[in-house]
Protein backbone atom coordinates (compact mmCIF):
# COMPACT_ATOMS: atom_id res chain seq x y z
CA UNK A 1 0.00 0.00 0.00
CA UNK A 2 1.42 3.34 -0.97
CA UNK A 3 2.08 5.82 1.82
CA UNK A 4 -0.72 8.33 2.21
CA UNK A 5 -0.16 11.82 0.84
CA UNK A 6 -1.23 13.47 4.06
CA UNK A 7 -0.86 12.13 7.57
CA UNK A 8 -2.17 14.12 10.50
CA UNK A 9 -1.05 12.64 13.78
CA UNK A 10 -2.66 13.74 17.05
CA UNK A 11 -2.64 17.40 16.03
CA UNK A 12 -3.26 19.93 18.72
CA UNK A 13 -3.41 23.69 18.18
CA UNK A 14 -3.39 25.90 21.22
CA UNK A 15 -3.83 29.67 21.25
CA UNK A 16 -2.89 32.00 24.06
CA UNK A 17 -5.69 34.55 24.27
CA UNK A 18 -6.02 37.48 26.68
CA UNK A 19 -8.63 35.44 28.52
CA UNK A 20 -6.52 32.35 28.81
CA UNK A 21 -5.29 29.42 26.71
CA UNK A 22 -7.66 27.91 24.21
CA UNK A 23 -7.24 24.61 22.45
CA UNK A 24 -8.98 24.94 19.10
CA UNK A 25 -7.89 21.59 17.67
CA UNK A 26 -7.65 18.92 20.33
CA UNK A 27 -5.98 15.76 19.11
CA UNK A 28 -7.06 15.21 15.53
CA UNK A 29 -5.65 12.39 13.45
CA UNK A 30 -6.49 11.57 9.87
CA UNK A 31 -4.97 10.41 6.63
CA UNK A 32 -5.55 11.24 3.03
CA UNK A 33 -4.36 9.39 -0.02
CA UNK A 34 -3.51 10.98 -3.35
CA UNK A 35 -6.62 11.81 -5.36
CA UNK A 36 -8.96 11.27 -2.41
CA UNK A 37 -11.50 13.82 -1.27
CA UNK A 38 -12.10 14.25 2.44
CA UNK A 39 -14.90 16.32 3.88
CA UNK A 40 -14.55 17.96 7.29
CA UNK A 41 -17.88 18.98 8.73
CA UNK A 42 -18.72 20.90 11.87
CA UNK A 43 -20.49 23.88 13.38
CA UNK A 44 -18.89 27.30 13.73
CA UNK A 45 -16.40 27.05 16.51
CA UNK A 46 -15.75 23.36 15.99
CA UNK A 47 -12.20 24.12 14.98
CA UNK A 48 -12.47 22.98 11.38
CA UNK A 49 -11.02 26.17 9.89
CA UNK A 50 -8.18 26.16 12.37
CA UNK A 51 -7.60 22.52 11.49
CA UNK A 52 -7.43 23.37 7.80
CA UNK A 53 -4.95 26.14 8.36
CA UNK A 54 -2.84 24.12 10.74
CA UNK A 55 -2.65 21.33 8.20
CA UNK A 56 -1.52 23.86 5.66
CA UNK A 57 0.99 25.31 8.07
CA UNK A 58 -0.42 28.85 7.95
CA UNK A 59 -1.04 28.41 11.64
CA UNK A 60 2.12 27.22 13.27
CA UNK A 61 4.24 27.66 16.36
CA UNK A 62 4.64 31.27 17.35
CA UNK A 63 4.51 33.69 20.29
CA UNK A 64 0.86 32.96 21.03
CA UNK A 65 0.39 29.66 19.24
CA UNK A 66 1.52 26.14 20.05
CA UNK A 67 1.14 23.26 17.63
CA UNK A 68 1.86 19.74 18.79
CA UNK A 69 1.59 16.51 16.88
CA UNK A 70 2.60 16.09 13.29
CA UNK A 71 1.36 16.98 9.85
CA UNK A 72 3.21 14.95 7.29
CA UNK A 73 2.93 15.71 3.62
CA UNK A 74 4.76 13.14 1.51
CA UNK A 75 6.56 12.15 4.68
CA UNK A 76 7.84 15.58 5.72
CA UNK A 77 6.45 17.18 8.88
CA UNK A 78 5.34 20.68 7.95
CA UNK A 79 5.74 22.14 11.40
CA UNK A 80 9.32 21.02 11.67
CA UNK A 81 10.27 22.90 8.55
CA UNK A 82 11.72 26.39 8.45
CA UNK A 83 9.38 29.16 7.32
CA UNK A 84 11.11 29.15 3.96
CA UNK A 85 10.62 25.41 3.70
CA UNK A 86 6.92 25.80 4.35
CA UNK A 87 6.66 28.62 1.86
CA UNK A 88 8.22 26.40 -0.76
CA UNK A 89 5.33 23.97 -0.33
CA UNK A 90 2.60 26.57 -0.47
CA UNK A 91 1.17 26.96 -3.90
CA UNK A 92 3.28 24.13 -5.25
CA UNK A 93 2.42 21.10 -3.19
CA UNK A 94 -0.41 22.36 -1.02
CA UNK A 95 -2.83 25.08 -1.96
CA UNK A 96 -5.75 26.68 -0.20
CA UNK A 97 -9.01 28.22 -1.30
CA UNK A 98 -10.57 30.60 1.18
CA UNK A 99 -14.13 31.41 1.98
CA UNK A 100 -14.70 34.93 0.75
CA UNK A 101 -13.82 35.59 -2.88
CA UNK A 102 -14.53 39.29 -2.40
CA UNK A 103 -11.59 39.69 -0.09
CA UNK A 104 -9.25 36.94 -1.27
CA UNK A 105 -8.23 38.93 -4.31
CA UNK A 106 -6.16 42.09 -4.20
CA UNK A 107 -8.40 44.87 -5.50
CA UNK A 108 -5.49 46.75 -7.01
CA UNK A 109 -4.18 43.82 -9.01
CA UNK A 110 -5.49 42.48 -12.27
CA UNK A 111 -6.99 39.01 -12.36
CA UNK A 112 -4.32 37.67 -14.67
CA UNK A 113 -1.54 38.98 -12.47
CA UNK A 114 -2.85 37.01 -9.51
CA UNK A 115 -2.24 33.88 -11.50
CA UNK A 116 0.86 34.75 -13.41
CA UNK A 117 2.82 35.91 -10.39
CA UNK A 118 2.79 32.45 -8.80
CA UNK A 119 3.75 30.93 -12.12
CA UNK A 120 6.65 33.27 -12.56
CA UNK A 121 7.78 32.96 -8.97
CA UNK A 122 7.47 29.21 -8.48
CA UNK A 123 7.99 27.94 -12.00
CA UNK A 124 10.20 30.65 -13.40
CA UNK A 125 8.05 31.16 -16.45
CA UNK A 126 8.61 34.18 -18.64
CA UNK A 127 6.04 36.90 -18.76
CA UNK A 128 4.48 35.74 -21.99
CA UNK A 129 4.42 32.07 -21.00
CA UNK A 130 2.92 32.94 -17.64
CA UNK A 131 0.24 35.04 -19.26
CA UNK A 132 -0.68 32.23 -21.65
CA UNK A 133 -0.85 29.71 -18.86
CA UNK A 134 -2.97 32.11 -16.77
CA UNK A 135 -5.52 32.31 -19.58
CA UNK A 136 -5.50 28.50 -19.84
CA UNK A 137 -6.16 28.25 -16.12
CA UNK A 138 -9.07 30.65 -16.37
CA UNK A 139 -10.50 28.52 -19.13
CA UNK A 140 -9.98 25.42 -16.99
CA UNK A 141 -12.12 26.82 -14.23
CA UNK A 142 -14.86 27.69 -16.66
CA UNK A 143 -14.53 31.45 -17.06
CA UNK A 144 -15.83 32.63 -20.43
CA UNK A 145 -13.70 35.11 -22.43
CA UNK A 146 -10.61 34.32 -20.38
CA UNK A 147 -8.30 36.71 -22.26
CA UNK A 148 -10.53 39.67 -21.54
CA UNK A 149 -11.11 38.66 -17.95
CA UNK A 150 -7.42 38.28 -17.28
CA UNK A 151 -6.95 41.99 -17.88
CA UNK A 152 -9.77 43.02 -15.58
CA UNK A 153 -9.76 43.89 -11.91
CA UNK A 154 -11.50 41.73 -9.31
CA UNK A 155 -14.30 44.21 -8.71
CA UNK A 156 -15.37 43.80 -12.32
CA UNK A 157 -16.21 40.14 -11.84
CA UNK A 158 -19.19 38.54 -10.14
CA UNK A 159 -18.82 36.59 -6.91
CA UNK A 160 -18.97 33.21 -8.56
CA UNK A 161 -16.39 34.17 -11.17
CA UNK A 162 -14.12 35.55 -8.48
CA UNK A 163 -14.20 32.26 -6.63
CA UNK A 164 -13.32 30.51 -9.87
CA UNK A 165 -10.34 32.81 -10.15
CA UNK A 166 -9.35 31.97 -6.59
CA UNK A 167 -9.54 28.29 -7.46
CA UNK A 168 -7.49 28.87 -10.59
CA UNK A 169 -4.93 30.73 -8.46
CA UNK A 170 -4.71 27.75 -6.14
CA UNK A 171 -4.27 25.31 -9.01
CA UNK A 172 -1.73 27.38 -10.89
CA UNK A 173 1.29 25.29 -9.92
CA UNK A 174 -0.37 21.87 -9.90
CA UNK A 175 -0.59 21.21 -6.19
CA UNK A 176 -1.10 17.71 -4.96
CA UNK A 177 -3.37 18.73 -2.11
CA UNK A 178 -6.06 21.37 -2.16
CA UNK A 179 -7.67 22.57 1.04
CA UNK A 180 -10.97 24.33 0.42
CA UNK A 181 -12.18 26.20 3.51
CA UNK A 182 -15.90 26.83 3.15
CA UNK A 183 -15.42 27.69 -0.55
CA UNK A 184 -19.07 28.31 -1.23
CA UNK A 185 -20.42 29.82 1.97
CA UNK A 186 -20.19 33.37 0.68
CA UNK A 187 -21.85 32.62 -2.66
CA UNK A 188 -25.41 32.45 -3.93
CA UNK A 189 -27.04 29.04 -3.73
CA UNK A 190 -27.18 28.54 -7.48
CA UNK A 191 -23.54 29.43 -7.81
CA UNK A 192 -22.60 27.17 -4.94
CA UNK A 193 -23.48 24.05 -6.87
CA UNK A 194 -21.47 25.20 -9.87
CA UNK A 195 -18.38 25.81 -7.78
CA UNK A 196 -18.66 22.52 -5.96
CA UNK A 197 -19.12 20.68 -9.22
CA UNK A 198 -16.10 22.46 -10.56
CA UNK A 199 -13.97 21.46 -7.60
CA UNK A 200 -15.11 17.89 -7.92
CA UNK A 201 -14.35 17.61 -11.62
CA UNK A 202 -10.99 19.31 -11.24
CA UNK A 203 -10.02 16.97 -8.43
CA UNK A 204 -10.86 14.02 -10.61
CA UNK A 205 -9.14 15.30 -13.72
CA UNK A 206 -5.98 16.41 -11.99
CA UNK A 207 -5.89 13.52 -9.54
CA UNK A 208 -5.59 16.05 -6.76
CA UNK A 209 -6.33 15.21 -3.12
CA UNK A 210 -8.90 17.59 -1.67
CA UNK A 211 -10.03 18.52 1.79
CA UNK A 212 -13.46 20.13 1.70
CA UNK A 213 -14.28 22.00 4.89
CA UNK A 214 -17.85 23.02 5.47
CA UNK A 215 -20.55 23.53 8.05
CA UNK A 216 -23.07 22.35 5.52
CA UNK A 217 -23.59 18.61 5.25
CA UNK A 218 -25.20 18.98 1.88
CA UNK A 219 -21.87 20.24 0.52
CA UNK A 220 -19.98 17.10 1.40
CA UNK A 221 -22.54 14.43 0.72
CA UNK A 222 -22.07 12.96 -2.70
CA UNK A 223 -18.90 14.89 -3.35
CA UNK A 224 -16.45 13.37 -0.94
CA UNK A 225 -14.97 9.90 -0.54
CA UNK A 226 -14.66 10.14 3.19
CA UNK A 227 -15.95 12.49 5.83
CA UNK A 228 -14.83 13.50 9.33
CA UNK A 229 -17.30 15.12 11.69
CA UNK A 230 -15.81 17.60 14.11
CA UNK A 231 -17.19 18.85 17.36
CA UNK A 232 -15.47 21.14 19.85
CA UNK A 233 -12.02 20.60 18.39
CA UNK A 234 -12.24 16.83 18.10
CA UNK A 235 -13.18 14.38 15.41
CA UNK A 236 -16.19 12.51 16.73
CA UNK A 237 -16.83 10.30 13.75
CA UNK A 238 -15.23 9.55 10.44
CA UNK A 239 -15.59 7.04 7.65
CA UNK A 240 -16.74 6.56 4.10
CA UNK A 241 -19.21 9.33 3.34
CA UNK A 242 -21.85 6.91 2.12
CA UNK A 243 -21.67 4.88 5.30
CA UNK A 244 -21.69 7.82 7.67
CA UNK A 245 -24.72 9.28 5.99
CA UNK A 246 -26.59 6.03 5.81
CA UNK A 247 -25.77 4.91 9.33
CA UNK A 248 -24.33 7.62 11.58
CA UNK A 249 -22.91 6.17 14.74
CA UNK A 250 -22.24 9.31 16.79
CA UNK A 251 -25.33 11.09 18.15
CA UNK A 252 -23.95 14.39 16.89
CA UNK A 253 -23.53 13.16 13.30
CA UNK A 254 -26.96 11.67 13.58
CA UNK A 255 -28.44 14.94 14.81
CA UNK A 256 -26.67 16.87 12.05
CA UNK A 257 -28.05 14.61 9.37
CA UNK A 258 -31.42 14.79 11.00
CA UNK A 259 -31.42 18.56 10.89
CA UNK A 260 -31.13 18.74 7.12
CA UNK A 261 -34.50 20.12 6.00
CA UNK A 262 -36.39 17.68 3.82
CA UNK A 263 -38.71 18.41 0.95
CA UNK A 264 -40.94 15.52 1.89
CA UNK A 265 -41.51 16.60 5.46
CA UNK A 266 -45.09 17.42 6.37
CA UNK A 267 -45.83 21.11 5.99
CA UNK A 268 -45.62 23.15 9.20
CA UNK A 269 -43.62 20.45 10.91
CA UNK A 270 -41.00 21.65 13.32
CA UNK A 271 -37.56 22.07 11.77
CA UNK A 272 -35.36 19.68 13.66
CA UNK A 273 -32.47 21.41 15.35
CA UNK A 274 -29.87 20.55 17.90
CA UNK A 275 -30.74 22.21 21.17
CA UNK A 276 -28.07 24.19 22.99
CA UNK A 277 -24.82 25.87 22.01
CA UNK A 278 -21.35 24.63 21.20
CA UNK A 279 -19.16 24.66 24.30
CA UNK A 280 -16.94 27.56 25.29
CA UNK A 281 -13.55 26.45 24.08
CA UNK A 282 -11.79 28.43 26.80
CA UNK A 283 -13.21 26.01 29.33
CA UNK A 284 -14.70 22.98 27.64
CA UNK A 285 -16.79 20.50 29.64
CA UNK A 286 -15.08 17.44 31.05
CA UNK A 287 -15.89 14.08 29.64
CA UNK A 288 -17.62 13.90 26.29
CA UNK A 289 -17.97 17.42 25.00
CA UNK A 290 -21.22 16.71 23.29
CA UNK A 291 -22.79 15.26 26.45
CA UNK A 292 -24.61 18.46 27.48
CA UNK A 293 -26.57 18.39 24.24
CA UNK A 294 -26.84 14.65 23.71
CA UNK A 295 -30.19 12.92 24.05
CA UNK A 296 -28.50 9.69 24.97
CA UNK A 297 -25.99 11.01 27.48
CA UNK A 298 -25.37 8.98 30.59
CA UNK A 299 -23.26 9.51 33.69
CA UNK A 300 -20.25 7.88 32.13
CA UNK A 301 -20.40 10.37 29.26
CA UNK A 302 -20.03 13.32 31.57
CA UNK A 303 -17.00 12.00 33.40
CA UNK A 304 -15.03 9.94 30.95
CA UNK A 305 -13.80 11.30 27.64
CA UNK A 306 -14.54 8.80 24.90
CA UNK A 307 -11.56 7.84 22.78
CA UNK A 308 -11.75 7.45 19.03
CA UNK A 309 -12.45 3.76 18.64
CA UNK A 310 -13.22 2.31 15.25
CA UNK A 311 -13.58 5.82 13.86
CA UNK A 312 -16.18 6.95 16.35
CA UNK A 313 -15.72 8.71 19.69
CA UNK A 314 -18.73 7.70 21.74
CA UNK A 315 -19.36 5.45 24.71
CA UNK A 316 -22.69 4.42 23.32
CA UNK A 317 -22.55 4.66 19.54
CA UNK A 318 -25.84 4.43 17.74
CA UNK A 319 -26.53 1.03 16.30
CA UNK A 320 -29.57 1.76 14.26
CA UNK A 321 -30.72 4.48 11.98
CA UNK A 322 -32.56 7.19 13.85
CA UNK A 323 -36.26 7.42 13.41
CA UNK A 324 -36.77 10.10 10.87
CA UNK A 325 -39.70 12.41 11.56
CA UNK A 326 -42.10 10.49 13.73
Amino acid sequence: MTAPLLEVDDLRTRFLTPRGPMVAVDGVSLTLAAGETLGIVGESGSGKSVLGRTIMGLITNGPTTTVTGAVRVDGADIHQLTPQGRRALWGTKIAMVFQDPMTSLNPTKRVGTHLSESLRFHRGLSRGAARTRAVELLKLVGIPEPERRAGQYPHELSGGMRQRVVIAMALACDPKLLIADEPTTALDVTVQKQILDLLQSLAERLQMATILISHDLGTVSGRTDRVAVMYAGRVVESGETRDVFAQPRHPYSGALIESIPRLDAASHSLLPAIVGQPPNMLNPPSGCRFAPRCAFAQDRCRTETPALVDDVACHFPLTQALEVHA
Binding site: L270, I274, L282, A295
Partner: peptide, 20 residues
Protein backbone atom coordinates in the same frame (compact mmCIF):
# COMPACT_ATOMS: atom_id res chain seq x y z
CA UNK B 1 -41.07 13.95 16.99
CA UNK B 2 -37.37 13.82 16.50
CA UNK B 3 -35.28 12.72 19.46
CA UNK B 4 -33.08 15.69 19.15
CA UNK B 5 -35.86 18.09 20.16
CA UNK B 6 -35.78 16.57 23.64
CA UNK B 7 -32.19 17.50 24.26
CA UNK B 8 -31.70 19.48 27.46
CA UNK B 9 -30.32 23.00 27.21
CA UNK B 10 -26.57 23.26 27.47
CA UNK B 11 -25.35 24.47 30.89
CA UNK B 12 -23.81 27.94 31.17
CA UNK B 13 -20.08 27.83 30.76
CA UNK B 14 -18.37 28.94 34.00
CA UNK B 15 -16.65 32.35 33.91
CA UNK B 16 -12.91 32.23 33.36
CA UNK B 17 -11.06 33.96 36.23
CA UNK B 18 -8.80 36.84 35.18
CA UNK B 19 -5.14 35.89 35.10
CA UNK B 20 -3.10 37.83 37.63
Amino acid sequence: MSETALLPAAPEAPAVPAAR
